[in-house]
Design a binder for these strands. Structure first.
Lengths: 222, 222
DNA sequence: TAGATTGTTAATCGATTAACAATC
DNA sequence: TAGATTGTTAATCGATTAACAATC
């Protein structure tokens, strides 16, 4: 039960949501118990790595038995902060913003989307996916009156930095950035999480290019 | 000019799109030349790491001078496969799919979106962002008649695996998966690139939770 | 109890950083 | 030329893997 939380590497942190997702799936399938080796096999990780990862946070298993799926899922959810009642606002209710409002289950990640902000008259005033779309002029006021943990950037790239600064000034702890540009807030300890679609596609582009190179030149027969 | 391409680590590969993005931005600003240390400072990397990364692919710089921005950008673009004329089809023209069709610049990553596929009668037949929406029944036929490199999964999670299998059977080299679930194609050498929104948000959730813990307990005054 | 599997330390591997000769 | 900065090898650091005693 040792807790040696001090400085968990980002490599480990990025795996936690995957664990959570896989455990949720296992629970849905009715699996009650799982060993590190079985979980590793299904996730493409080594049993050692899973035990080492979990060891960063404490002992959640039972020797000779493995891990109780529901309990481990619960613990990892707790580590991720799912039960902290986090809140978010979105700025930019264009196509992508609306898609997230309508489809993305904020609740599954422990978030509540309080409102979206936009400038377009045909969008302001509507309610999408349960959240109201307000005029962006009211952003500062809203942030002052509500505890908002995360600001979601789905504005056009050119507006990203300035809107981000308004969110940071308003006191958000994190920025979830969907614009293809970089945003940065020096002097602030706000956490920025980027979702760069084009980085993702270019990585895929590289990998399929390699593949066809290998085929063409007859290398790597395996 | 040594090329020692053999087995470039994924850590390096994932940084290439970032280099490309930053160099594009520098070029747009009219910067002609940059040193590894200046680029490192602006990207939050060490000069050493940048030179080491580029060394995987060859010598693109000039001693005593640095790197020509346009040339380095061009070279990295080439490595990423941007000029290979990659093609893609999308399956699932719901909110998210439409948002990508209308907003995402496939061309900037060297891709052409040939078509989207859906089942809804009010969507099939339309043209969105320059690409036609066809009925998913015609997917196999389309894949047989066109060279398609990447299949884009924007269907509901429950359909992801089966639609993915149809794309793989049709011969795509890569799957760009936007569904929140996992897809896998054992026995195939297709490359899967996941965009897991919830993993991203949960990572952010963890990081802001840590931040508030530190504040509350007075730890890490820094 | 015997078998299984964790928690935890030690060993290995790979990625990042440092150093410096080459050279523009 | 002197100064700057790369290309490239060596050293360090951190993450993954292996090992095994603890124990359910």
């Amino acid at each position: 039960m040792t807790k040696r939380n001090s400085k968990v590497s980002t490599a480990v942190i990025r795996r936690l949501p995957r664990y959570y997702r896989h455990l949720t799936e296992l629970q849905r399938k009715g699996v009650v118990r799982i060993s590190s080796s079985a979980l590793g096999k299904s996730m493409g990780l080594t049993a050692s790595q899973i035990r080492q990862d979990l060891f960063c946070f404490g002992g959640f298993g039972q020797q000779g038995y493995g891990y109780k799926v529901d309990l481990l899922r619960e613990e990892i959810g707790e580590i991720l902060g799912i039960s902290r009642g986090h809140t978010a606002v979105m700025v930019g209710a264009g196509n992508l913003g609306r898609a997230l409002m309508e489809n993305f289950e904020f609740g599954s990640s422990g978030f509540r989307l309080l409102a979206a902000f936009d400038v377009r008259p045909d969008t302001v005033g509507r309610t999408i996916g349960g959240a109201p779309v307000l005029h962006v002029d009211g952003l500062e006021d809203f942030l002052a009156k509500n505890q908002v943990d995360v600001g979601l950037l789905t504005v056009p790239r050119c507006a990203a930095q300035s809107v981000g600064e308004r969110l940071v000034a308003g006191g958000v702890a994190g920025i979830w950035n969907f614009t293809n540009g970089e945003v940065s807030f020096p002097g602030s300890d706000v956490v920025v999480e980027n979702v760069h679609f084009s980085d993702s596609l270019l990585t895929l582009s590289y990998m399929i290019s390699q593949r066809s190179d290998a085929q063409t030149s007859g290398k790597e027969p395996q």
